[in-house]
Design a protein around this nucleic acid. Sequence first.
RNA 1: GGGCGGGUGGCGAAGUGGCUAACGCUGUGGUCUGCAAAAUCACCAUUCACCGGUUCAAAUCCGGUCCCGCCCUCCA
Length: 531
Amino acid sequence: MRIHNTLSGRKEKLQTLNENEVRIYVCGPTTYNLIHLGNARPLVVFDTLRRYLSYRGYRVIYVQNFTDVDDKIIARANEEGIDALQLSQHYIDEYFVDADRLGIMQADIHPRVSEHMNDIIDAVGKLIERGYAYEIDGDVYFRVRAFDGYGKLSKRSLDDMRAGARIAVDERKQDPLDFALWKKARASEPSWDSPWGAGRPGWHIECSVMSTKYLGETFDIHGGGADLIFPHHENEIAQAEAMTGKPFVNYWMHNGFITINQEKMSKSLGNFFVLRDILDKYPADVVRYYLIATHYRSPLDFDDGKLEEARRALARLKNSLQLAEEFIQGDEAEAAELDEQASAFLTEISSLEASFIEAMDDDLNTAMAIGHLFEMAHTLNSFLASAPRSEAGNRVAVFRALQTFRALGDVLGIFMKVDDEEKKAVEGLLDILLQLRSRARQQKNFALADEIRDILSEHEVRVEDGPEGSRARYEKEPDASELVELLLAIRGRFKAEKQYDQADWVRDRLMDQNVIIEDTREGVRWKFADA
RNA sequence: GGGCGGGUGGCGAAGUGGCUAACGCUGUGGUCUGCAAAAUCACCAUUCACCGGUUCAAAUCCGGUCCCGCCCUCCA
């Protein structure tokens, strides 16, 4: 695999320190807020990297930190009059809610600043000892000019930076670019005891300390958003390499930004979208698809239309999945001879699988990989449309193709499945509606058939009729209660028209789905039996 | 001001020296369908911001011009 390394500015072949093992550190969120879409991009990008490396046979050791001691957290906690660490804990919990919904695998270790104070204090002490840092009245600063390679990641010289510096210079610092390793405690701030008095760590030191603690003094990949290149990652390198005298990270990966109407989305500009709100409107796999349909280093513009387009595009892939599943219907285990068409079909699938891998190997080119997935869907659909499913060989071929197709979609995390109780109830209710509609169609009662389809369409459920029956498809699960109401309304009409056998049929089917119906003088009452 | 990246069809987005410029969305026509939907087949950029150069060959390399985003300050 080749990876674009920010350090060299080039794509380089991935050569891990240990064979078949990759050690990755990704900068996680500062926990003072619900995460927004901009935070979600690196989560999904590096989760995809992780899945892909696993798929390619690597053992992946993945560490993602929480910065739970920070100016913004303290400010927010003071505003709300609560303890800073308590606020952090709250948003860490909320982080996991959102990340789980997005299908982000948990890291092997999620270290927090607050739990590594001794390690951080030791590190700061060591840096002072070695002349890379100095103390002034309870503050400790890193001495930038003592570290030779300063600026190698962000490709800037110290002189350039001094010239363009917009920061208010702290006169006590030896160099304007020296940055804080330890900050002296002020009133109403959480603090920890140290050899320099009560205080707390500066922003960058935690990542140097925690990454090397869990992954070693040198590790393979460090990732994060492009805005972290300077100063955060530049400073991480300076601290870590000053401390160990060894190269800190071999491959630096940075994702591009999400913009809103061509303007950077950020908490400070106030134009950010909270991930949770987006996940309430669109399924997680659609959001993932949107985030990786563009190469990770490119900027990505966001608006509602983008998710809608992603939804439609992904629906095409998932439709192929469903068509293929229906085609094999559990007969997959059979062994059978493949005819020429089926063999050619599988050859094509293998070749597209190879193309997918080739794309992913080229700096995680998910955009191109997805392109190959669409070609695979096309190949699959064409075969399904032309090969009779009565041939066992065809079913075997589709089964194998489906396995490949699904595996690749799972690498990207775009074939997420939700099957819980709610879904079962919905499936059952939809099935009643479909049966009702089939009966109407058989009786040439197209008015009722179309009405059912139209009403379902209002609930964003599409009805499709095929030679072997109808099916309901949806990306967003409809509300079970509304479906029950719908069925009861139809039943009410049957009753009014004195079609009691039809009305009773609906009631019986609803009972099968654990819906209890009571006809009262005031009207119909119902409830789920297990609710 | 300094640094980095980018401008590809109606839209989104790959491609970085040589086959018909992927793929998706949208749109158009045919098949299928009670009608639809899905699926399927076909069509939709002689052209890659602009100008000049290198080369047998450039969207891809070089020079210039215009425009856009990001970083240099907390930020994914």
